[in-house]
Design a protein around this nucleic acid. Structure first.
Lengths: 210, 210
DNA sequence: CGCGCCCCGACAACCGTTTGGTAGGGCTAC
DNA sequence: GTAGCCCTACCAAACGGTTGTCGGGGCGCG
């Protein structure tokens, strides 16, 4: 978490003015509307209305609508990957670490529901340049690496495909935003625990087929 | 698989003219472009170009763009649900039936990749009326029911949450269209088998925690 | 003839973006 | 202190392009 006020003009296209409360507010509003209606169906008019501004005035904060989407997903993308890597670095035996990672990742996805919704649903609406700066493959690599580690444990199925397993784990987790409701019967912790047990136990040799 | 030529004018809004080769061709083209660019980013111009027609001429086949999307997803929705229920009715012991269902469903999703991509990605772009006619919850209910059946088997974790488990299964499966490539290293059968073993074995009591 | 199939031309609405202007707060020089 | 200045934040109005949709007409075929 870099402490930056008056963000320096580094990189290609940093936000014009970062960290003001108003900028964060705009990001939140945009994320919420993007999540509800979809990027392409969202009008700058929609955002400006909720922001309390004429739509042209938004260009004081953004360079283009595309960049606004990028700024929204960049935050949650970076945060999620950092969080995932932190979990993956825990000092636990590989199997339990995998369990903790799934629990924690599901928890993150739910804690950042609107952001992850936009990231997962509108990712391919980004320009090719912006998309290249968010290599979602990294998520898969982290989880696949953990599966490789776990395979050293004799309890784990030796013929487990790390990539395929990682994709199954991430797929299950990434689907949560489509059905989770804060007033639902299950808490984020219960969901994370259930997913972790289901998926990690599925990697172990047990009563099932080999 | 209903055999219908010259589809009767049942329901609210059947296609103006069904089953002509040209109509099916239009559906395929629309589905492909919707899958690639997204519904909202796809213009009738795009579709008309590939169809070899001026965009106004499309209204000879469709009533509106929204209806075109509906017709695309209706096909794959109905087919997928029918296929899933057929698999769920197989005369197998509940655990093996669940395995077969996951294998078969993944296989279906891959066999109908463009259609399922549109269904899963553009579902909420449908009008509320159209959406109500495609209760996606039905998928969840079918799988949850199978989990309930399987729970009668003593090998299965007795405290398994059917809804949560069904959502995990469907989430993993529904993610496939985001990464599957026909020239990839794994065949549809291998993917389905890997997913089935991972998820079903995860439901069994084994070496893991309870 | 009649009908399916498509062209042609248009329209109204909308959308992202631009340009020019302005109120006001705060810093600085005198 | 106050006049001058700049910067931030926004308004007002427009522009060019695009989009979904529609009506009318023509052509070929059974």
């Amino acid at each position: 978490m870099v402490n930056r006020r008056r963000a320096p003009r580094t990189g290609t296209a940093p936000p014009l003015r970062a960290d003001d409360g108003r900028w964060q507010e705009l990001l939140d509003i945009a994320a919420r509307i993007f999540a509800r209606k979809g990027y392409r169906s969202t009008t700058l008019q929609d955002i400006a209305d909720e922001f309390g501004v004429l739509k042209g005035s938004l260009y004081h904060y953004i360079r283009s609508k595309d960049e606004l989407l990028f700024e929204v997903v960049r935050t949650v993308y970076g945060g999620g990957l950092a969080h995932l890597r932190e979990l993956a670095g825990a000092d636990l035996d590989p199997v339990e670490r995998l369990r903790a990672v799934i629990r924690g990742h599901v928890r993150y996805l739910i804690d950042n529901l609107v952001g992850t919704t936009v990231l997962l649903h509108e990712f391919d609406q980004l320009s090719a340049e912006h998309r290249a700066r968010l290599p979602v493959r990294d998520y898969q690599e982290v989880v696949a690496g953990l599966v490789v580690d776990a395979r050293a444990d004799p309890r784990v199925k030796p013929d487990l495909d790390p990539q395929l397993t990682a994709l199954a784990v991430l797929g299950a987790a990434n689907w949560v935003h489509r059905w989770y409701r804060p007033d639902g019967r299950r808490s984020p912790e219960e969901i994370g625990a259930a997913y972790a047990d289901l998926l990690v136990d599925g990697m172990l040799t047990g009563a099932g087929a080999g």
